[in-house]
Simulated assay, not measured.
Amino acid sequence: MTKTIKEQTVGQLGGNGSVLARQRRDHAEIDRLMDHYALAEGDERERVLKEIVRLVFSHAFAEETVLWPVVRRSVADGEELTSRVEEEHQEINDLIAEVERLPQGDPVREEKIERAFSLIRQDIRDEEDVLLPRLQEATDSARLRRLGAVWEAARLTAPTHPHPVVPRRPPGNAVLGVPLSGYDRSRDLLGGPVGRGARKLLALAAGLLFAAFTAARRLRKRS
């Protein structure tokens, strides 16, 4: 079996543009930020946490939208491997959603952050040691670079915060990701949540989009 992507050269991963190299760079940055969070204090600590959240959720969205469908098609036990990672993603999603509702300084909030960080580190290891090497075995370097370009485009336009309404798999996550990404990036730019009315409108728009997409798929299957 191919060794963990953590120990391979960039060339072995398919080059700088390969999805494997891009994944590893993101993972290294997430690890660095979590270490920084542990040492930071006050406003700097909160700034680092926000940066972690933005990177983790845009990264996971790109995986679930672009990468895991390829793993399920290309790897013999891809369904089992991606299901396990998706469960980790969902638990991280739920924890960070709770963190964002709790006030700074609340000890429960810090416990949930520590649990989320532990899960993120476990998720990185599962991906780098098991799932991504299996994809590497089944995929040539040229395809890994093509996947890397699509993955990067998805990451740059992805939601940057947890959303309970977003499914873990396409097409639902891709359909709902468009309006929610706009909301999240406005929130990041303004430095906090936008108004309640805007949240309700975006939630409604996301629900309508998903319902319309589901209905269209059903009609196509019947025709």
Rank of each mutant, 00 (worst) to 15 (best):
M34V: 01
R47C: 03
K3W: 10
S141L: 07
P133C: 08
L204V: 12
A97G: 06
E114M: 09
Q8G: 03
F213G: 15
Q136W: 11
A60N: 14
V175K: 09
Q23C: 14
S58C: 11
Q136L: 14
G148Q: 05
L202Y: 10
P170L: 06
V71E: 00
L131H: 01
L119N: 06
P167C: 04
E87C: 03
A153D: 08
G148H: 05
F61E: 12
E80Q: 13
P193G: 11
T2P: 15
T214K: 11
R217Q: 09
S118Q: 14
L190E: 05
E128Y: 00
L189I: 10
L208D: 06
F210E: 13
E128S: 07
V66H: 01
R115H: 10
A211W: 04
A116V: 08
K112N: 11
S186Q: 14
R101D: 10
D126S: 11
Q23T: 12
A62Q: 10
I52T: 09
P164C: 02
L219M: 09
V130N: 09
T82F: 09
V71N: 03
K200L: 15
F61K: 13
G105Q: 12
D129Q: 01
Q23E: 07
E41Q: 15
E98V: 09
Q12R: 03
K50G: 14
G42L: 10
R45Y: 05
G78L: 00
N93F: 03
S186M: 14
G42H: 10
L131I: 04
S223N: 13
L189C: 12
S83R: 15
A40K: 03
E41S: 15
V165A: 14
L208K: 03
D43M: 12
D106E: 13
R121Q: 04
L202G: 12
G11I: 08
E79L: 13
A158M: 12
V19C: 02
V66W: 05
E127S: 13
G191I: 00
F213W: 12
L67F: 05
L119H: 01
F57W: 01
E137H: 09
L156A: 15
V71Q: 03
